[in-house]
């Protein structure tokens, strides 16, 4: 370059070539960046694909098992021995989203891994240098993961529904998308996964450690309700409070029949969504202040 001996003019021309309108950071661009990050780590893509497959597989298995239960209940001899077993026709509606527990386990882990691995590898410093305001970067990552989770959950539930129909149909247990609660169940299977991923990623952001984040979020989502059921089952206030655990909120969101006195789907969404929102806000505030 001929200008290199004249620093000042070179700088001027550089100025002009530099920031022009539209060259800065905006949320759409940060979203695109986070999308590239999610799709360019092979293990992430593999995990997402396997979650869908596992959820569909569980729906198919449960459909097959339900037909066996139904056949048994239709047989008068067997039915007399099966007092107290759930009604096959009733539980068949829960089949599309029946892989939700394992889906939560996988997507919550992935949500934690996506953020905590940035700390583990040091990538977070590149992220925060590119987006020094930090909040847009975290929100974009949360949004991408929530959308992926929703598509995984709702998509797997819909495919689970499609696969279950011919199996259930053989025992006359088939049902349609228009039947009461079915469509909401399928959509909310996605919504639960989306909220769970926000919940888990916020925890991952706070603890900045993959193992710690996975253990904490899985512990709260899947282990805590079991512990509460075992040790607090007899105590009234514990049972009452347990309805407001994040996992209980998720359960109610996908319920096809609401028990007397239980929260309905929307109230369940408020419970799980409330937990996710509170943790999200805390994680944003803490990250904004923290050194990375």
């Amino acid at each position: 370059m001929a200008t290199s001996t004249h620093p000042a003019p070179a700088r001027e021309s550089h100025r002009k070539a530099g920031p022009t309108s539209g060259s800065g950071v905006n949320f759409g661009r940060v979203l695109k960046s986070e999308w590239i990050k999610v799709t360019t780590v092979p293990s992430t893509v593999i995990l997402i694909a396997s979650t869908v497959l596992v959820m569909i597989g569980i729906a198919a298995l449960l459909a097959w098992q339900t037909t066996i239960l139904f056949d048994a209940q239709s047989d008068p001899d067997m039915a007399s021995q099966m007092q107290g077993a759930p009604d096959a026709a009733e539980i068949s509606r829960d089949i599309p989203g029946s892989g939700l527990v394992i889906g939560q386990l996988l997507m919550a882990s992935l949500a934690v891994v996506l953020i905590a691995s940035e700390w583990a590898t040091g990538m977070i410093r590149s992220t925060m240098v590119a987006v020094p305001r930090r909040t847009p970067a975290l929100l974009a990552k949360q949004l991408i993961m929530a959308l992926v989770s929703f598509v995984v959950g709702a998509g797997a539930a819909f495919l689970g529904y499609l696969i279950a129909q011919p199996i259930l149909g053989s025992s006359d247990l088939g049902f349609g998308l228009g039947d009461e609660g079915v469509l909401l169940h399928i959509i909310n299977t996605g919504s639960v996964l989306a909220l769970v991923s926000i919940f888990a990623m916020s925890i991952g952001t706070l603890v900045r450690n993959t193992a710690g984040g996975v253990v904490t979020s899985i512990g709260v989502l899947l282990v805590l309700p079991i512990v509460v059921a075992i040790f607090g089952g007899g105590t009234e206030w514990v049972v009452d409070a347990a309805r407001f655990l994040p996992s209980s909120g998720g359960e109610q969101m996908v319920a096809t029949t609401i028990q007397e006195g239980a929260l309905n789907q929307w109230q369940g969404a408020l419970v799980l969504g409330g937990w996710a929102l509170v943790l999200l806000v805390i994680s944003l505030i803490v990250t904004k202040k923290r050194d990375v």
């Binding site: 800065g24 661009r29 960046s33 986070e34 590239i36 990050k37 360019t40 590149s126 590119a130």
Partner: peptide, 12 residues
Amino acid sequence: YNHLRAMAATHG
């Protein structure tokens, strides 16, 4: 390449 692409995307 993908690392740089993700960084670049934030600024268009």
